[in-house]
Design a protein around this nucleic acid. Structure first.
Lengths: 375, 375
DNA sequence: GGCGAAGCTGAAAACGTTTACACGCGCGCA
DNA sequence: TGCGCGCGTGTAAACGTTTTCAGCTTCGCC
């Protein structure tokens, strides 16, 4: 115990009353001083702060949250496809998680995270019991299954934002990439490389709205070029490598000619590339491949994966800001973020040898990228 | 409002008193019923539960935590090297984060996460203000800088566990991989492939204790083989790709012969491989490479990275269990987890073509692995 | 000198739980 | 009849804040 202070024995953790006694003021004044109320006299405030520091006093958040009826905390609910191996989370969502965590920290909020199976009861949990002021929903959402839950949330007045496809009639607020534009850009790019028999790997149904939108962009690009999507070249897949392998195999076994694959996610693309290699096919010479998300691994695959980047950093900040504004009662709009095509090698594009264009990942000069093509 | 119930108008969120009125009992009984006290009559309990459900009543965690003085929450503090690009977290720690989240959920605890710069004041935050019952510390710890903080935590009686090097005189509890054994296994393996001029990339100082331990294992393996570590073949690096590239370049520019590199982490190894490629060197033919951690990307590099796996899933469970036991006042021991060598292609090992041994990542048969070597 | 205003501070009432304690009731048993 | 004992329930006191309201100085100004 600090020696210079009055002889008051503190049992366990000090509370504001202890500080008050030691500083010779009332407990109310301690509270005011600590929260920076302008009304408390400067000398008094400093004395209080000094005592508080000496005793390592910290305001009890439970008490203060209880009183103020807010928690200074947001909750992140990460929904996983129940079929996915538990131990590996989709890297794209991990990246979102990182940026959300940072955005929260910057704004002085704590972040509670929780992995959810899409199954039960989650909608009630965090805000209702005052553990969080608002919810961030993350995951490839099964739109149909989801919908009733979202409606319940809205009806309850729960504050939440959702990462995912931005659909017109969706309950609540969504922020997501412009998947349509992404699919369009990716497919146009493949067409520009001279590919004509372009497959699509990933669910194209309302159960996976972002994949569906990517497929719509894909189909639109084909039509622009006077082509029609060939059902033989499409196969469903959730966002895992193994699903990607299976989907690619399915397409290849159908026997239809195929000179490119647009995968609805990078994991699918990577799985597909594995399957192509296993059949002795070359990427991009025989089949060009483009993915979606630009997960970190996309830079390290061989050949490096051309993909559609989603700016997770920006997205995280937008999600948090939107949610905080909702919590403060402001009206907020859904947002679509523009995607960005990252051209690497898997699409078969000829890259300028001298200086790579801005959208291409910078690599040390003379790296295997050019080497490979020169061979 | 549900029609069958007494006409009591509820303003905002219902509290236990509202439930009590509607169910015709005292508020205390409501509390007891909801927490499952055996003493409350079965019929009463069911009536209460029914009312609570109808009103979508949820216990206020702030109030209940305040009363019980515990939070049902753990806090995860992730320390980052301040020099690292903000947007990318070391994938190894992301994997730990995932397994810790899951372990918490399974045990009914919530998880608060927070990225910290090793800099200031963190030690006081979460448990002191009752937001969490205990802390999990994660990150390549700068031992020297760290130490005083850990001592302060111990002195304060804060409950915490730490992932990292398990050192004899460390304050508090640590759980970590057996880095010594990992370094030994990796280096022995390279020696068994006939490599003799083996470099080490990564800090070998007390500032990075896990790297230091890996280096010790490395040195021990060399000595076993009658060799001595050559200082020309060692270069410092923090755990990033760019640091790995720089370190590899540094070693190569010194001009000493080098036929293998053992990197203290996978990110370093991947960066080193980039640097090797950029100089026209082949992996593993010219320089074999082995990493550490087995991050997901290690399977997708080209050639696939041989590395030392740390079982993050198990580690996460151990961390959480240890922490919860501490919180409950039990005595807990530090633990070292055995590492596991994952042999892939970057080390130059000759893999059985027919059936891969158990420690090798299973890939679809006929994959590029064998293809490549057959070439 | 009186009066209002301004500047600080203290008393006390919430916030919504959990739980020790007391109480009432019905029953078995002496 | 009286006693003791369970069983179920209610009363009330915490838990540690924040904040309204009121009160006490002190001061400036007419």
């Amino acid at each position: 115990m600090p020696p210079g202070l009055l002889h008051v024995q503190i049992k366990g953790k000090p509370n504001s009353l202890d500080i008050a006694h030691l500083a010779g003021v009332s407990q109310a004044t301690v509270s005011r001083a600590l929260r920076g109320h302008a009304s408390v006299n400067r000398a008094t405030r400093e004395r209080i702060l000094e005592v508080a520091k000496q005793l390592n006093y910290k305001v009890d958040k439970n008490a203060s949250n209880l009183r103020t009826q807010q928690s200074g905390t947001l909750a992140l609910l990460l929904f996983e496809d129940p079929t996915v191996d538990e131990s590996n989370i989709n890297p794209f969502f991990l990246s979102m998680l990182g940026s959300i965590t940072r955005a929260c920290a910057q704004r002085g909020y704590d972040l509670l995270i929780s992995f959810q199976q899409l199954s039960r009861d989650w909608h009630a949990d965090y805000e209702d019991c005052h553990k969080a002021d608002g919810l961030i929903l993350l995951g490839y959402g099964d739109y149909l299954d989801y919908r009733s839950r979202l409606e319940a949330l809205v009806a309850q007045g729960t504050h939440f934002v959702r990462w995912g496809a931005v659909l017109a009639d969706q309950p609540g607020l969504s922020i997501g990439g412009d998947n349509d534009a992404g699919g369009l850009a990716a497919t146009r790019h493949l067409l520009a490389q001279g590919r004509r028999r372009i497959g699509f790997l990933g669910h194209a149904s309302l159960h996976a709205p972002e994949f569906l939108e990517r497929h719509q962009g894909y189909a639109a690009a084909l039509r622009e070029a006077g082509l029609t999507p060939d059902p033989l070249l499409q196969a469903d897949a959730i966002s895992t490598e193994s699903a990607g392998s299976e989907a690619a195999n399915l397409v290849l076994e159908r026997g239809a000619r195929c000179d490119a694959l647009f995968a609805a996610s990078d994991l699918i693309a990577i799985g597909a590339m594995r399957a192509l290699f296993a059949r002795g096919l070359r990427v991009p010479e025989d089949v060009a491949v483009v993915g979606y998300d630009d997960i970190p691994m996309a830079q390290s695959t061989h050949p490096a994966l051309t993909t559609v980047q989603q700016d997770t950093r920006h997205a995280g900040e937008l999600l948090v800001d939107a949610l905080l504004r909702m919590v403060q009662g402001e009206a907020v709009q859904s947002i679509k973020l523009p995607p960005r095509l990252m051209v690497r090698q898997s699409c078969g594009a000829v890259l300028q040898p001298a200086r790579a264009p801005a959208t291409v990942t910078p690599l040390p000069e003379g790296t295997r990228r050019t080497r490979r093509h020169a061979r």
